[in-house]
Design a binder for these strands. Structure first.
Lengths: 154, 154
DNA sequence: GTTTGACAGTTCTATTTTAGAACTATAGCC
DNA sequence: GGCTATAGTTCTAAAATAGAACTGTCAAAC
């Protein structure tokens, strides 16, 4: 597989996988959503090798998920802030957390609880249809080839 | 990182990443949701090496995402069917597809369109709060340590 | 004014994973 | 017997990751 052009495949899943489809990247993003911003912060909480962390942060910046922002001029120091494109990954992360809560739990109970500030309650994320608002299930969805697929296939 | 025990970390994201946190696994799951079930089917549509495909299918069966079901007795042939645990991965896949549609699109338009059979319309998936039904955004969520975290940390 | 420590990386070698291709095994069909 | 289909396994080469040490800048402590 040519992983270097995966982000140009005529498949939105492939394109997303090209960006966030590896273990370290997903764990780094978890830390981002937990408000970690600095190299040493990621490194110490994840125990990732510095080499790979450096590599992954560069990639996330290159794809516009993180912005490298200086927070000190001398010495030059940067922190990594989620862009809007990065913040929009939240449903993916939350969907993964929720699946883990549901299917990979143990007797100790949930590791984290999530409170929705708007309503003040502890919640679970639910995926619904943008048109009718009903919860979505795989078997209720029919897939059609869109223009981007038809053009690519010929 | 000890990837072999990632599924026991006191973090639901880590546990999910342990199961679906690599590129091939995510692409295999895409095919599953597109109704692919057989070894040759996965292999030819993904161009994955047979070795890795075999490896990943075993892992997905081991984690209870797929069930290996015989469809021919002589010679013994099996197909791989999503379990309920596997079907529950749908929000993750759809969240990724939607992010790709939104942020990784090109001038050719969307590769796939999704129709919700219940309401008959083309839709996008939206993640909402289980309690108030409002769409969720990262900045509106406050995270608390749950019992599983507290016990693990001490 | 030299040492220590914090931070943000880079460089190096050893190990593990993945790619790519060939091979094995069972059975139906001609 | 020879050909094809399916579902794998085995092998070697290439690529990615782990783990540790090293670099460079500056502030603060001694």
């Amino acid at each position: 597989m040519k992983w270097d052009t995966l982000d140009e495949e005529p498949c939105s899943l492939s394109r997303t996988v090209a960006v966030v489809g590896d273990r370290w990247t997903l764990l780094i993003l978890r830390e981002c959503f937990l408000r970690v911003r600095r190299f040493e912060g990621f490194q110490s909480s994840l125990q990732i090798t510095r080499h790979l962390l450096s590599e992954r942060l560069k990639k996330l910046v290159r794809f516009g998920i993180l912005r490298r922002v200086p927070y000190s001029e001398a010495p030059k120091r940067y922190e990594y802030i989620l862009t809007q494109k990065g913040l929009d990954l939240y449903p993916i992360i939350m969907a993964m957390v929720h699946w883990g809560d549901t299917h990979m739990g143990d007797e100790r109970g949930r590791p984290l609880l999530h409170e929705h500030k708007n309503c003040g309650k502890l919640f679970d994320p639910v995926m619904v249809c943008s048109e009718c608002g009903e919860p979505l299930h795989a078997k209720q969805v029919h897939v059609h080839a869109g223009p981007g697929r038809k053009e690519a296939v010929g």
